[in-house]
Design a protein around this nucleic acid. Structure first.
Lengths: 109, 109
DNA sequence: TACCAGTACCTAGCAACACGAAGTAGCTGA
DNA sequence: TCAGCTACTTCGTGTTGCTAGGTACTGGTA
């Protein structure tokens, strides 16, 4: 979409990915494809992989290497307890921000 | 509030400030105080000033120097036509993002 | 066999942005 | 005089997403 989305994704993309993982386990390539399908048309592959490495290092997800019939083995990520806790925090923060924004939008009309 | 908000503000703070300016003209110190009042308790002053310089350079706001009785002259910013256009784009992008997030939140339960 | 497309992951360098910390400057009241 | 509020500025840092490469495995096709 453009620069605006890119900047807005900073700080939210992590939550988005964790939210996806809260529903089901998934691997990088899959997540990227899904996001592109959902309208984040120009999400960069590298971005997702780097993000996954980050959340893994922070201990928010568990990883399992699963062989694929169509290429190299997949690194399947799943949200663990710590990750769920973090995701809760994320939603709280998001709600706060979204609330302020909504208020501003109303007031601005 | 913490690191989460800080990261989320990247990309949205600009829109927030422009939205404020769409309602009324304001100067940096005033905007900072207002934001802190609204719950953005630890917004850094420097952040707002830098942001205002940025949007001015992009031609989204007009500036007027107004003397103050209580200190140095104020730089009063007001949203111009280009700024309003940009703000519209911001709201569009925000809506898109908020929509996706809301959907993820529903699905994740 | 050689090559390409699709799958799947990784990395290095860059730009944008918010923050922390410090500084400048003007005014008022104790 | 000096502390405290008002008001703006600047520099260095950390985090983050993007660009642009690269590696590696598979299957189909010329």
């Amino acid at each position: 979409m453009g620069k605006l989305v890119t900047e807005m994704l900073k700080g939210t993309l992590e939550g988005i990915v964790l939210a996806i993982l809260s529903g089901r386990s998934a691997y990088g390539y899959e997540i990227t494809a899904w996001l592109r399908d959902q309208g984040f048309s120009d999400i960069a592959e590298g971005t997702i992989y780097a993000l996954l490495v980050r959340v893994e290092q922070r201990g928010l997800v568990d990883v399992e290497k699963v062989p694929s019939e169509k290429g190299p083995p997949r690194k399947v990520y799943s949200l663990n307890a710590q990750g769920r806790e973090y995701l809760e925090e994320f939603w709280t923060t998001w709600s706060f921000l979204a609330g302020r924004l909504e208020q501003l939008r109303e007031g601005g009309k």
